[in-house]
């Protein structure tokens, strides 16, 4: 363990911990844009800079290892000035349509500007002016809002492995974009949506949820993806009894926030108009709506007409354990062991 002092408080951390982690241990808040504990840190955004006594310049707390005897200040004037100036620089190159921006309420840029009292930028000048890419059905890329934190690029390379997006150009013209600056649709993107989840600002917006809800109106329900056998954790974000948006559940031990396109963008079947809503009975080759009472009565009556072994049931690899259990219990209780499901398919 090594010991350092942050804002006058002493803290002990494991060797290899960063200053940011040490501050977290003390409950000291440090803003971050490009930090993601899942990834190797790159120190790009510089919003997390802190002052380390005897160091020549400010250091990025997210990627600077804590050292024994280090004396750190996270809220000195020098630090605040740098944060404000950097926010101001970001703001100078960012559209200010916060009123209608989908990210309002969970935008880090907005939150930090609020926190540090940066209301408008001192440094007006040229702004980026890129076309929106909304060619794919899943999400919109608005690179005018991008603050180039690079999280999406790292997620796409280091977590997904798709490597669909990259930095191109230099200096002020730097931009995150798929190979050859093509639309996403023609890239190696597999639309896992993980970049969308990671973007700290409103540059990547899921299409399904546009103008559906403000972040603070959403209730988060953690559950498990209904598709493949990996069992990824999903957070369903609900407003007015409707799942508006989905994101990976960072707390899930299996998936750690990771998703694929189906889990992330394929849950809207829930609201399909084709969902079955009432029991149906077939009469003369046509389905008629009926009541539960009548439907279940009919099924029970028919079951009583056949011999136990003439009953067979197919359970479901997509229903819950409880339901599969009850299903086999039911068929078996009737005297038949002909229960199966499509495990083999």
């Amino acid at each position: 363990m090594l010991s350092l002092t942050i804002n006058g408080h002493e803290v002990k951390v494991e060797p290899g911990s960063t200053i940011l982690q040490a501050a977290e241990k003390l409950g000291i808040f440090i803003p971050t844009f490009c930090y993601d504990p899942q990834l190797a840190q790159v120190g790009a955004c510089r919003i997390c800079v802190v002052e380390v006594e005897k160091a020549r310049a400010l250091v990025a707390s997210c990627c600077t290892p804590a050292a024994d005897g280090m004396i750190v200040h996270t809220d000195s004037e020098r630090v605040l000035a740098a944060r404000q100036a950097n926010l101001s620089l970001l703001l100078a190159n960012h559209p200010l349509d916060c009123l209608t921006c989908e990210k309002t309420g969970e935008c880090k840029l907005q939150d930090y500007c609020y926190l540090y009292g940066v209301d408008e930028s001192d440094f007006v000048g040229a702004q980026k002016d890129y076309d929106l890419d909304d060619t794919n059905p899943f999400y919109i890329r608005d690179m005018n809002k991008c603050i180039l934190c690079g999280l999406c690029v790292r997620i796409c390379y280091d977590v997904n492995g798709a490597g669909a997006i990259e930095f191109i150009n230099r200096g002020f013209d730097s931009k995150v974009t798929p190979a050859f600056d093509d639309p996403m649709e023609y890239s190696s993107c597999v639309f896992c949506g993980m970049c969308v989840d990671s973007c700290p600002v409103g540059a990547l917006i899921p299409k399904e949820s546009i103008r559906q809800a403000r972040p603070w109106e959403l209730k988060s329900v953690k559950t498990i993806c209904p598709y493949c056998g990996t069992g990824c954790g999903l957070e369903l974000l609900v407003k007015d009894n409707k799942v508006v948006k989905v994101r990976g559940d960072l707390s899930n031990p299996v998936s750690r926030g990771q998703t694929c396109v189906k889990g992330h963008f394929g849950i809207d079947f829930l609201d399909s108009p084709d969902r079955l809503k009432t029991p149906l009975v077939k009469k003369n080759g046509e389905f008629r709506e009926t009541t539960w009472e009548d439907a279940l009565e009919l099924v029970a009556a028919k079951l009583k007409e056949v011999k136990p072994t003439e009953v067979a049931g197919l359970a479901s690899a997509r229903a819950t354990n409880e339901e599969n259990y009850l299903f086999q219990k039911l068929i078996r209780s009737l005297g038949s062991n002909s229960v199966d499901h499509c495990a083999r398919l």
Binding site: V299, V311, A312, L314
Partner: peptide, 10 residues
């Protein structure tokens, strides 16, 4: 040999 089938979610 089988006259009644019950299919749940398949």
């Amino acid at each position: 040999k089988v006259k009644f089938m019950y299919v749940m979610g398949e």
